[in-house]
Amino acid sequence: MSTPDTRETAGPGVETSAITAAALALGDDALVLSHRLGEWAGSAPVLEEEVALANIALDLLGQARILLSLVGDEDELAYLREERSFRNAQLVEQPNGDFAHTIARQLYFSTYQHLLYGQLAAGDGPFAGLAAKAVKEVAYHQDHAEHWTLRLGDGTPESHDRMQRACDTLWRYTGELFQPVDGLDLDHTAMESAWLDSVTAVLTKATLTVPTGPRTGAWAAGAGRQGLHTESFGRMLAEMQHLHRSHPGATW
């Protein structure tokens, strides 16, 4: 994509009220992770996992469609925004890597998303209806990720090493998940400590070492919510948006 993006706002025709900003952040998380999981179609280690990852991707795509529709036209938002206009956390855009990386990303994200939707469902804000529905679906995503973490971590020396490497590599992207998002009235501190407890319990049971690197601060990654993304995200978007940009207005 060669067109320079000079827009400071979230995209074409987007209102930047607090609620739409929050919908964009959560919707972009769901959309981007959905696309990443979809990349496994045709190349997952076993057929059952191909189906599982596609099902999880479909749940996330459903959430993304509802959230982005609160902001504007879902297709325009998904296919016509430039990289800097996306508000997803950097964790979800990380490449699939080997299967262990995908599972570590799923473990970190689904644990966070389950806590997030749990809090939103308990409130009466604009996302309560979606959250009450999605929290039940995400419980299955989290269960799936936890079982695979146990299986790989407490598996062969090779699977253990790969799972450990994946957990270490992605650790630095997890702090960003608990930075306040405009328009979301959440107890981020409670969410972060519940997340740490949950992930620590799973990793320990899986005979893995809880990573010790920074999750926030100067050495941590994160600024996706401000529109700053990591290198591989541009390539992912190029593939995701290619068809729509090449054939504007095309339909089935």
Binding site: V51, N55, L58, Y140, H144
Partner: peptide, 8 residues
């Protein structure tokens, strides 16, 4: 066998 099958 798997938590996810032919449909979600």
């Amino acid at each position: 066998l798997s938590r996810f099958s032919s449909t979600a």
